[in-house]
Each structure stands twice: as structure tokens, then as C-alpha cells.
Design a protein around this nucleic acid. Sequence first.
DNA 1: ACGGTGACGCTCA
DNA 2: TTGAGCGCCACCG
Length: 103
Amino acid sequence: MGFNEKVWELAKKIPKGKVTTYKEIAFALGSVNSSRAVGNALNKNPYWPSVPCHRVVKSDYSIGGFSKGTEEKIKLLEKEGVKIKNHKIEPSKVICRDFFRRN
DNA sequence: ACGGTGACGCTCA
DNA sequence: TTGAGCGCCACCG
């Protein structure tokens, strides 16, 4: 199982209404500085929508990218109950690396 | 093997 | 506080 597949596995575990960051996923995989590679993996995610990659945002709480466009990503998140103001998500909705360790 | 690419993150001005 | 600059890392030709 390669790095990309591990990323997709973790992303699958993010509950509806919650989000995480590229950085937290990198931490959970034990490769602290690979947040950029995590973004790459999600960009190429072939399992949409089974892998909810729209629930992954940047560590500064801004939206980050999305293959179908940032606006679409925002729509999906708000539809799931994550409020966004000034293109920033609510920090309280972010689950951290420990969540993945225990799951 | 090697260099280019990108849905990132941190630092410093 | 905001943005440019630079480092990072897996993947692919």
C-alpha cells in the first residue's frame, strides 16, 4: 500500500460535519513534513465520493483546493453543517491526529 | 536516476 | 496581518 492509498484510507474516516487538515493527515501517517504530498494524493483521489476529500482543509483554516472548485467545496461543507465565514472554517470542527490513531 | 509538479506550511519583512 | 519566498515530499515521465 503506497502513501496515496494511506491518505485515502484516513480521509474516509472523517465523519460528516467534521473536517481535518492536510497537516494532521501528514502527522497521522508519521511523515510530518509531507502535507504537500497529502494534497497531491487527494487531488488525484479516484474514489470520489466514497473518499470525502472535501473535508480536508488548510492548517490556517482557509479552504484549500478542490478539483471541482473552491466554491463547490464550500457548498458541500456547509451542507454538512460546517459554517464558513471569510473563507475560513470553524476551528472547532477540526479533528486532530489522535482521532486517526484511535481509529 | 533526475528533475518537474502541486488541493501545503512556516518564516520573516 | 498579509504576502512572498523557500522548504518539503510522493508521484510521474
